[in-house]
């Protein structure tokens, strides 16, 4: 079922999500002091996320969306468009300036931005996982692959060495990391393999939401294709609500069914991914799609 919603000046198709897992409303992140004038002095129409009024940077503004279980939502845009800022706010790495993010958990809805840092951290253990572009952000390089997976498991209360080993090897097998490398330090792994370990770690406690930040950027094309295949099949297997941030339309196309296009801190288009690729409305999206197709 679709209905049309006004997003700025551009009519966009929006899939009504019957059962959202994560719902984000009017998320904003501004670096520096701001008011309505400052906000109005930035954005796609102005051509900058940096305010000429006072130099404040409106990294993200008025970003709203929902993601359902089993669904993957893309956030696409060039670097500096604000997509990673949105992801980092949701991950808890960056404090948002305004907005709300609600997460559906077994114990009811949680307003994530209202939680203290301790509760945010607990959320990251078993409910909301992140796969970073740089494996060094998500993994400890001087710890074995198994040990990296043991971290969220022990944080969730696992205390049986054999069971932790079994779970780690199950996850590494699933993410196609050779099991004989389970006890090697992650530092010694190739880029693609590190990313697979990071994904295995993210899945350790079966999170309901996973955020992917440019998960294949920086990998060789063939390695990237393998990791993308893996992510896609994992998303199909588990009823995960996923957000995939990428500057690369081929990643978005492969993994997501819907996506938001961001430019200068704002969402300029919100559509089903295949529709967006077929028939982009916003000129910026048209440019991005044309570039991707070239």
């Amino acid at each position: 079922m679709t209905n049309d919603v006004e997003y700025g000046r551009y009519p966009v198709a929006r899939l009504a999500v019957p059962e959202w897992m994560l719902k984000v409303e009017r998320l904003g992140r501004v670096y520096g002091p701001y008011d309505d004038t400052v906000i109005a002095s930035t954005g796609p129409e102005i051509g900058s996320s940096k305010s000429a009024v006072n130099g404040a940077v409106v990294a993200a503004w008025d970003v709203s969306f929902e993601v359902a279980a089993g669904e993957a939502l893309g956030l696409v845009g060039e670097s500096g468009s604000g997509k990673t800022t949105v992801l980092r706010c949701l991950a808890g790495d960056v404090a948002p300036s305004c907005g709300e993010a609600r997460l559906r958990t077994t114990e009811g809805d949680v307003s994530m931005f209202d939680l203290d840092s301790s509760a945010r951290r607990r959320l990251r253990i078993d409910t909301l996982a992140v796969v970073y572009q740089d494996p060094a952000e998500g993994l400890k390089m001087n710890i074995s692959a198994g040990g990296n997976i043991a971290e969220p498991l022990t944080a969730a209360g696992w205390r049986n060495f054999g069971k932790i080993r079994d779970r780690a090897s199950e996850l590494l097998t699933r993410t196609e990391v050779p099991i004989n490398r389970m006890d090697d330090l992650v530092r010694s792994f190739s880029g693609g393999m590190k990313q697979r370990v990071q994904i295995a770690k993210a899945l350790a406690n079966s999170p309901s939401v996973v955020l992917f930040d440019e998960p294949t950027t920086g990998l060789d094309a063939s390695v990237a294709a393998g990791v993308l295949d893996l992510i896609r099949s994992l998303l199909e297997e588990h009823r995960i609500a996923a957000i995939v941030v990428s500057h690369d339309f081929s990643v978005i196309e492969m993994l997501t069914s819907r996506c938001l296009v961001m430019q200068h801190g704002r969402v300029v288009e919100n559509a089903l991914t295949d529709q967006l690729l077929e028939d982009p409305h916003h000129p910026y999206t048209q440019r991005l799609v044309a570039a991707a197709r070239a």
């Binding site: 301790s118 951290r121 040990g147 043991a150 971290e151 969220p152 006890d183």
Partner: peptide
Amino acid sequence: HAEADYSRMWVSLYEDKVR
């Protein structure tokens, strides 16, 4: 300590036993 976040201690025991 404040959050009783001792998972890294457990990871160090895990690594120790593995190694």
